[in-house]
Design a protein around this nucleic acid. Structure first.
Lengths: 250, 250
DNA sequence: TCGAATTTGTGCGTATGTATC
DNA sequence: GGATACATACGCACAAATTCG
């Protein structure tokens, strides 16, 4: 029976959502069962089911077969400071909270030469098929995986130089800017494009998530005098982290 | 009848998905109707419905009541440029935020006085319960909703000034920086924290999505001499847009 | 250890409302 | 107006997982 405007299942979902966000139903508590919802709200089994499905799609609750539907923990995502976030120490209130994630954890990487494909070639301003060095990283923070990264550098730039392999040599692991400077390439600009999508099964396996979890994807490209010198895809679990930028206003 | 392992609706959804990604069902074509699916796959109405729902939740197709279910175009997400640099005097925030996109946007807004709650109060550096002006925006581009925004300004700052209401007066709709300058508050910094999560049903209803679609959430805070003067939550559908930052290095 | 009760997840059939063609 | 198709809703059935006495 439509006795208002919005569908019954959205009305029920809305009421339950309110109880969750208001803290009336804190994390780890069980939602009323489908049967309880049905009688409490005077709706049918289908409506109770659809309402639960809405909340599950929103990531607020999680159904456990045979047990119940439980409110999920939603930790406040920690900040990952991106390029440009420079907390000028002292006079500013940009408190670098202890909650902030430092990127100074541990990481593993593996590099290999390959050919640039369409999108990567375009981002690097080179021809598809040109040789690039591809390096894959897994960053960990306290043992917990926090970030995946795949970076590409044109071999036309770094080939036959000491910094060809990002993680080898005297400047291994020093970062793109320092490494490029060693071969007289002065990095002066960076673009970061932040998007989001459901994580791929492969990514979530590495990041310790479950299918359906959302990831942030940062497409980063470093430039030297207008020329792209490195580009990377950074994949970050969105339930645990956010990326932070700090910019001047003129 | 389960004559395999995975649920029937997932089997049907999987088959239809394959046809879509393989190009057998290109964008703008109509899926078989529920009745057709029912008979073609030998399943019930419910299964056909659930299968369509899966594809809709994945954003691959879009149901149009009375017409059919259509394969959606999956455009490369467009850039929304976020930068602390104001392009020119008189430009609205919307123009700036649209950057790469077309310049013809419309928006609606509504303001009301309210009390700052926990998280907002903390972001504004004020006490919970302090009065703030809350303004909600719906930004559209070509009629299509592209962005939701809720902003908060401390009334201790703008109260009893001509710019108390963001969309009223001679500087209505001019953006935070210009309005603040009119009352001698010089905005010089901004932080943006980008996160992502499944959209809420209400948000997606406004943005034209379906429960389960991913949204980007930008928490933006403007500062004047280290003091927060405005903070906002910007909600953007992640399947259509990315946010872009362009920063100098060092 | 066993078994009954509960709960989710899946599936079926049907009915009605409403938007589109 | 009529036909088609999606959207919502009701009621029921059963399997699998879990819980608990």
């Amino acid at each position: 029976m439509t006795f208002g405007e919005q569908p019954a299942y959205l009305r029920v979902a809305g009421d339950l959502r309110k109880k969750i966000v208001d803290g009336l139903l804190p994390p780890h508590t069980r939602l009323p069962s489908q049967a309880k919802i049905r009688e409490e709200y005077g709706v049918s089994d289908t409506v109770a089911l659809e309402a639960r499905k809405v909340l599950m799609a929103e990531g607020l609750v999680e159904g456990r077969s045979g047990s119940g539907t439980y409110v999920r923990e939603r930790p406040v995502p920690r900040r990952i400071a991106r390029s440009g976030f420079r907390p000028e120490r002292g006079a500013t209130p940009f408190r670098q909270e202890q909650a902030d994630a430092s990127v100074h954890g541990t990481w593993e990487s593996s590099s290999e030469q390959t050919e640039a494909r369409g999108a990567v070639a375009e981002r690097l301003g080179i021809e598809p098929g040109d040789r690039v060095m591809r390096t894959k990283y897994v960053f960990r923070e306290g043992g917990e995986p926090m970030m995946l990264s795949t970076s590409w550098e044109p071999l036309a730039l770094t080939g036959r130089t000491p910094v060809m392999l990002p993680e080898e040599g005297p400047l291994g692991g020093m970062g793109v800017v320092e490494r490029m400077r060693a071969i007289d390439v002065i990095v002066d600009n960076v673009t970061e494009e932040v998007g989001a999508r459901p994580g791929l099964a492969e990514e979530l396996a590495l990041l310790g998530g479950v299918p359906g979890h959302v990831v942030l994807v940062v497409q980063r490209t470093y430039f030297a005098s207008g020329r792209p010198v490195e580009t990377a895809d950074v994949v970050i679990p969105a339930d645990r982290y956010r990326v932070a930028y700090h910019l001047p206003v003129k």
